[in-house]
Design a protein around this nucleic acid. Structure first.
Length: 425
RNA sequence: GGAGAGGUGGCCGAGCGGUCGAAGGCGCAGCACUGGAAAUGCUGUAUAGGGGCAACUCUAUCGAGGGUUCGAAUCCCUCCCUCUCCGCCA
């Protein structure tokens, strides 16, 4: 959420920055609403001060022994009633206006950072760096073909259990998924991350706090009988881990690594990535999440990205790092580095981690602050996958495949998986 | 699901219609004392939003929302949450 003070004092800046994202907002109306809200608030609190004073006087007079039925007291009571009516009226207007303002503000995305390159869509994203040597031979198999041959997973039967876009992992496939999750968690914990395993049913306040609601309700699965949703990413519960808290400055940064299954409706992606493990309604992900002091957030963003990259490097998977342009930025982010892993069969790089800095955007929605002396301020939040597990498996299968039908398991993963190869039966 | 108890500041805990943002304690910070520390003493110590260059000041907040009242942490209603016992259950 954007700062209301900024809305009042510098709406043009908001308009300019949001237009970098390709969003045009009527900031003048917004400013008017914000100003109106503050004016009414001021009038109301001044009236309340008078009412409070009358209340005190009545109390004093009665305690001094004046008859509560006397004209003097009755007159004060009548004045009190008058003010009460006026205050009630103002309160109602104030409520309407501020909920209207809040609704509008909750629907606006974060402002892109200065460093974020301008652009319209993914074509304007910038390549920052490459790692590894991508395999370029022809006739490499797609991962779902490998999966079928080695009996690692079953998507057809999963449609029977659930719908399309679900998978059942089988045999070595299930074992590999489990190995990957443990491997990633251990890698991050060794770097000082605190491991958490959060609930995956989250309430509306949590989804609003991290930015998924109110705008993207159609992207999440909702439990109709409760105020609960299936989380689309561990980012949601981990943000709310510290919702409505003040974190002492000397405890920052807080760095969490959270494994969770993730649930996404993938509305509007009909026909895209219909095969394999790339786009599922349910997938596993290990998420990195930092709560940091504002002055350290930019450096932390680079560090978090490096920590996510370390997984790909340890698994010997070639990748590139992309600096997302303003038009391709997610709702809460002010800048994002995407890690894209090499998928040789498709001869392309695919997103496997999205490392974002959200500045105070989520912190303001979630009311997460830090305090140094008397100075209380919003913290900054950062998140990134480390990594999306299903896509990692897809990349491992495609990159590790051999002409005899087996797949090499990267050395770092062997202790977790228990074998150095996946072999056909 | 049934029965009962309860939700007050960072924590514990008092207040149960009047000047209460809230006693007391713990914790924390500063100062004094000390060679240094402990102990002790003094002072300070919530959040949000307004106004003011500032000192400071106004309003709201005692789980949430409504109600009664000139006045509510205190009374009434609804909801949420926590705890104990019983039932069910991995």
């Amino acid at each position: 959420m954007l700062d209301q003070r900024l809305v009042r004092e510098n709406p043009k800046l908001i308009a300019r920055e949001l237009s970098r994202r390709g969003i045009e907002v009527d900031v003048i109306t917004l400013q008017k609403i914000a100003q109106q809200q503050r004016d009414i608030q001021e009038e109301r609190s001044n009236l309340q001060a008078v009412g409070k004073q009358i209340g005190k006087e009545v109390g004093q007079k009665i305690q001094m022994g004046l008859d509560p039925k006397s004209n003097e007291v009755t007159e004060l009571r009548l004045r009190g009633n008058e003010i009460k009516a006026k205050v009630a009226n103002l309160e109602e207007r104030e409520k309407t206006i501020s909920s209207n303002l809040k609704e509008k503000l909750l629907g606006l995305p974060n402002l892109p950072s200065k460093e974020c390159p301008n652009g319209k869509n993914e074509k304007d994203n910038q390549e920052i760096r490459f790692w590894g040597n991508p395999r370029k031979e022809k006739n490499l198999k797609e991962h779902w073909e490998i999966g079928q041959q080695l009996e690692l997973f079953d998507t057809e039967r999963s449609a029977k259990i659930s719908q399309s876009r679900f998978v059942t992992l089988i045999n070595q496939g299930a074992r590999l998924e489990r190995a990957l999750i443990n491997f990633m968690l251990d890698l991050h914990v060794a770097k000082g991350y605190k491991e958490v395993l959060p609930p995956v049913l989250v309430n509306t306040a949590s989804l609003t706090g991290s930015g998924q609601l109110p705008k993207f309700a159609e992207e999440s699965f909702q439990c109709s009988d409760d105020d609960l949703w299936l989380t689309p990413t561990a980012e949601v519960p981990v943000t709310s881990l510290h919702r409505d808290e003040i974190i002492p400055f000397n405890q920052l940064p807080l760095r969490y690594v959270a494994y969770s299954p993730c649930f996404r409706r993938e509305a509007g992606s009909y026909g895209r990535d219909t095969r394999g493990l790339i786009r599922l309604h349910q997938f596993n992900k290990v998420e990195l999440y930092w709560f940091v002091h504002p002055k350290e957030s930019k450096a932390s963003h680079l560090q978090l990205t490096n920590d996510a990259e370390a997984v790909l490097q340890a698994l010997e998977l070639p990748y590139r790092v992309i600096d997302l342009c303003t038009g391709d930025l997610g709702f809460s982010a002010s800048r994002t580095f995407d890690l894209e892993v090499w998928l040789p069969a498709a001869n392309t790089y695919r997103e496997i981690s999205s490392c974002s800095i959200c500045d105070a955007f989520q912190a303001r929605r979630s009311s997460i602050r830090t305090k140094e002396g008397q100075n209380t301020q919003l913290i900054h939040t950062l998140n990134g996958s480390g990594l999306a597990v299903g896509r990692t498996m897809a990349a491992l299968l495609e990159n590790g495949q051999r002409s005899d039908g087996s797949v090499d398991i990267p050395k770092a993963l062997v202790p977790y998986f228990g074998a150095s190869q996946l072999k056909p039966k």
